[in-house]
Design a protein around this nucleic acid. Sequence first.
DNA 1: CATAAAAGTGAGTCCTCACTCATTTTCATC
DNA 2: GATGAAAATGAGTGAGGACTCACTTTTATG
Lengths: 220, 220
Amino acid sequence: MSEAMEPWLAELMGAGSSGERMTEKQKRIFEAAVEVFAEKGYSAASTSEIAQRAGVAEGTIFRHYRTKKELLIAIVAPAMVRMLAPFVLREFRDVFKTDYETIDQFLRAMIENRIEFLEKNKSFLRILLQELPFHPELQEQLRSVVFPQVKERIEKVIDRFREKGQLIELPSVTIIRLVASAAIGYVLMRTFFGSSGNPEWNDTRERQATIDFIRKGLTP
Amino acid sequence: MSEAMEPWLAELMGAGSSGERMTEKQKRIFEAAVEVFAEKGYSAASTSEIAQRAGVAEGTIFRHYRTKKELLIAIVAPAMVRMLAPFVLREFRDVFKTDYETIDQFLRAMIENRIEFLEKNKSFLRILLQELPFHPELQEQLRSVVFPQVKERIEKVIDRFREKGQLIELPSVTIIRLVASAAIGYVLMRTFFGSSGNPEWNDTRERQATIDFIRKGLTP
DNA sequence: CATAAAAGTGAGTCCTCACTCATTTTCATC
DNA sequence: GATGAAAATGAGTGAGGACTCACTTTTATG
């Protein structure tokens, strides 16, 4: 089991999440793999189909990724970081640096930011959620690297609001859980029912309801 | 490996959903299939392993299920009904028939009931969630059969509480979404972090916090 | 433009998969 | 305990899986 530095780790460290020094065909392989994995799931996806969709010989895949699993990891690991630890990253700085006065404002900014992100990364999210249960290394990464970072960052915001008396007295983890559940529930319902022109789904209202729900549930 | 018959199996067999007159080996196949599917996912599960765990020849599987997929459906389809439309079933009647005076009481009864159910049916839930994205027939079942039933049943309870002025004015679907998100979030977090003797997880407290959160979020 | 390394190829290897079928075992009924 | 039907078996089959390797093409560099 002793391998060299694992590729996802390398990628984690280098800024480039997916396409830095890739050749044209390499990019096509990566993209095709995302497509096929998202569509059929990792196990049911075949390297031959990935090669075909990428317009590449099957051998080419294995020139760049030693195994099919390595290809999966190359996709999922950086995605995980971008998905769940965006709190440390550029784009999210905006949300934290501005000193929001009310939880309402903060929640709205955060939820909007995450939705925008998720809609641009649906396939990644799907692969991640799909494969997480079967790869303990990924779970471990999530638990011991990603989550603590997120937790630390968010805890500061929570403390700030708590000091202002805008937040109930609860462990930070509990608060994070409650907020995340409601937000994710909204996003899931949205992609499942809404978006695609369902007249029954009033997005602005649902979002407002979710934010109100969270605020009321968390103020003393 | 050989455990006592899991409760959901008994339930499945009692009701005439799929397991009416199963031979001993047939039951073993069914059980082993649930086990392996939950563990490795449908695609990565092999019929030979299922046969092995069931202590049965591989051919025996195909005497009872024409294809591997048919075996999956035989597991998932009834599970779906049991999982998400339990509101029409025996055990859940208790929750509805008693006229709970406060939302608090009702929520606690419901959440406790669902948690109990889910913990007895983890494998099922896992297979269902895992395979739902890849089988449109199942999605359709969910959307057009299961969900409407659940919705109709719950709407009555919601209306009752709303009339008493204990519930905020929101569409029923929204309320269901908010409650379900919080509850499911709790259960997920619980199985991910808690349960296995994690001292950081105080279950009673987390559950109480969840219920309080929902109640406060939904009262006017 | 010579050269060597890197990228790309695809026929071929070996293996496991879902599924079949001729045969044997189990079991209810007489 | 004989008989026939249902249940169970497991070696066998062809298809398709991940991965290899000897080879060709592209690219960077002097």
